[in-house]
Computed example of a mutant assay.
Amino acid sequence: MNKINQEVGKKIKAFRKSKNMSVQQFADVINKSKGTVSKYESGDISIDVVTLYQIAGALNIRVEQLLYYDLRQASSLNTIPSTFFKNSNRLFSYCYDGRSKELIRCVMDLLPEPDTNRYKTMFYMNVRSFESYQECENTYWGYTEHYDSITTIILKNQATPIENMTINILASFLETEKKWGLMSGVSFRPFMPISLKMLFSKIPLVENQELINELKISKDDIRIMKIYNMLAIT
């Protein structure tokens, strides 16, 4: 069985499940039989380009999100001026939701091929597990730009395009395994502008109370907010 077919099939299945669609419901949308869709998802048969775009449209995602990239061999990010992002096609990030008192896991994929000075970026927020991170609460599509002293990530919610998010990461030129970032945008629970501190890592972190305490707004954060009258993450 072709590995590429398997990986593409796994992504189709994950996105379908994240939309709460049964195999039959999805088959009806793309005008295929239930058996054919099952074979797509298992990787038993290849998918032609036209059908792949049709599937992406039915799932309300970009076709690039279904493609397979060998992250071990991809090398196009090794020339990025940002040391933290160098050779990193996938990053893991965390934030804390004080309303539900839950740790929120996120995954960010950067496509191996840069588009001019931008890197296409897919962001999956509130994932259930890193093994099937396409099954998440919200998916975003956008791009990443690296500057001398800051990295800026601009994202749009694929389900609700009115929701735009910007993430800024300072001093990404430093060699480190973790970096703090500030996400700013609009929340829909409730509907209002928000800013959120996020921790980015090259590898999944141990999810314990220590991590949660780091992600919470601290007394020092409040002290800085009082000084500048703004939420600042460095």
Rank of each mutant, 00 (worst) to 15 (best):
Y68I: 10
S22K: 05
S187H: 11
I224H: 04
L174W: 00
D70F: 13
L52K: 04
N168C: 13
T234L: 13
A171N: 02
R16L: 09
I162R: 08
E102L: 12
I4S: 03
A74D: 11
S93Y: 13
T234N: 13
D109C: 08
Y143E: 10
E135S: 11
V186Y: 02
G35A: 08
M1L: 09
L205I: 11
K179S: 01
Q54Y: 07
E41R: 03
L67C: 01
E41F: 06
L182D: 09
E175P: 00
E214D: 15
L231A: 06
K120T: 14
R16W: 06
E177K: 01
E135F: 13
R90E: 05
I47R: 00
A74W: 09
D44Y: 07
P190G: 12
D44P: 05
D221Y: 09
T144L: 09
Y228F: 10
I217P: 08
V107I: 14
D109H: 09
I45P: 02
S76D: 11
D28H: 13
Y96E: 12
E102G: 15
E145C: 08
T139D: 03
L205D: 04
P114E: 06
T144D: 04
I47E: 00
E131L: 05
P81M: 04
M225A: 15
S33K: 02
L111R: 01
P81N: 07
A56L: 12
P190Q: 14
I45W: 02
V107E: 03
Y68G: 02
M1V: 09
G181M: 04
